[in-house]
Every structure is written in structure tokens, then in C-alpha cells.
Amino acid sequence: MSDGIAWMGAHHHTPSSTVPGMLGGISLTLARGMERDEFLINLGADLDELAARTPCRELRVPVERPGRPSPHLNRAMYGMSGEWTYVLEDWGMATWATGYRGKVRSMLPCEGEEILCLTANRFSPPALIIHAPGARAHRADFGTDTEQGSALDAALSAAGAVFPSMPEASEADVVAHFEEHAERLPELVFTAVGAYTGVIIDQDAVKAGDLPGVLCR
């Protein structure tokens, strides 16, 4: 068992199809202040799937045509840690991030709720942090913070996940820091989010696909 969630960042560049469950390229969405199944339904989960609590390793994405999975359905693994619902996806993005940015009504943040999303953003880099501590969401590329002076921003800074930028640092210093630390940046970001939320997700269970799964639409 692995404590925390830093291991997800450490495997950010690992190919995503090497295990029955998930390991590499994981996008993580965390939500609190709402009921777990309600949040999953907002992501497009089917009621029957939720009731079945099928282990993620047993999920099969329906094929659009032979040999080609549907581009509109993606596996997601989920669970609870403390007061947070967590959703893991390894298809290159986070469903909540795409829905929120696409103004899908069910995915818009609300007062009294908090959503924190780390989306790998493989199809349009860089990876992103999206934090909605209420009805308004704030975005930041990996390596920066949300500029809100929040407890999340403090955690990012403390973990070393906020890289120097111009004009506060010289171009040479910015480039040198990035070249030295870029490989570890996802791990630093996940470390910071783990410190901020207190979320712990078992690496072995995720890798094996033992956690319940749904298909997000």
C-alpha cells in the first residue's frame, strides 16, 4: 500500500495501458460537499453501473466498430478518502475538466462544494490544475499556482511545485530550473494536493483495478 497520492505524479509519464487497472498518466478529480454518487452521475455514470460496484478491471468499453472502443466512453475508477470523493482516469484527460470547460451544466461548480482536478491534458499540454473552492474555478499550469493566495497555493509552493518565472527570475534561471526539475514536476504537484486534501489512495488497489469503476460519458 502506498500512502498519499504522490505516486500518481511519479508515474505521470508511464504508459497508461500496462496494468489491469491504472498506473500511468492518471488524471485525478476530487470533490467534497456533495454526495459521491451524485457527483459520478454528473460525470455521466450510469445508475445501474453505480449499483453494481463492478471492479474497474472488469469494465469493458463498448466498441464503436470492431477493434475500436467508443470515443465517447472512458473508464473511471472511484472511491472515498475522508470527506473527498476521488475519480481516476487514464485516457489522457479528466472528464470533469472537459465538461466544465465545455459548460456542461451538471459539471459547473457550485457554492458549498469544492472540486480540485489534476488533468493530464495529453491532447493539449501542459497538464492543468483546476480548483473550484466554490462557484468560481481557477486554473494553473503545472509549475505555477492559481494566484489566489489560497491554502492550495501555499501547499504547491511548500512542495516545490511552483517554478520560478519571469520577470521575478532571469530567463536563464527559469530555463535551468525547468531543465533540472521538469521530470519530477507532476510528482511535486500531486504531493502538494495530497498535503492540501489529506487524500490517500492505495496504489496497489488502483494498479490491480480492484476499486469500483464506471464509464464516464
Rank of each mutant, 00 (worst) to 15 (best):
L118F: 00
E38K: 03
A158I: 07
G9P: 01
M1K: 05
H72Y: 14
A97L: 01
T146Q: 12
T85H: 11
E89M: 10
L40A: 06
L128R: 08
L215H: 06
L108I: 14
P66R: 00
M166R: 07
I5T: 02
R68H: 15
H177T: 10
H181L: 03
A169L: 04
A52F: 07
G99A: 15
N42Q: 12
V162Y: 03
G21A: 05
G198A: 04
L73Y: 13
M107N: 04
D90M: 01
L128G: 07
A6R: 04
S70T: 14
H177A: 14
D46K: 15
G44M: 15
S17E: 13
R53T: 13
G134L: 07
M77S: 13
V104W: 06
R65A: 07
V162K: 01
H177N: 09
C117T: 06
G82V: 13
A159V: 11
A182C: 00
G92A: 07
G213N: 10
G112A: 14
D90E: 02
A137S: 13
A195L: 05
R105D: 09
A76K: 09
L88K: 08
L156F: 07
K103R: 14
R101P: 03
G67M: 06
S16A: 13
T144F: 10
S27D: 09
H131M: 04
R136P: 04
M1Q: 14
P164F: 04
T146I: 12
P125D: 02
A172D: 15
L215K: 00
G33K: 13
M166G: 09
A120I: 08
A140Y: 01
R105N: 08
A6G: 03
A76L: 14
P167W: 06
G79Q: 05
L43F: 10
A176L: 09
M77I: 15
E111T: 10
R139T: 13
I200M: 08
R217F: 08
E180W: 06
T85A: 12
G209E: 00
M107H: 09
A140H: 01
E83T: 10
I115R: 05
R53S: 14
G112H: 15
I201G: 02
T144Q: 13
E89Q: 15
S170I: 05
G82M: 10
G149I: 07
G102R: 11
L185K: 01
G67Y: 03
V61E: 11
I201M: 10
H72W: 12
C216S: 08
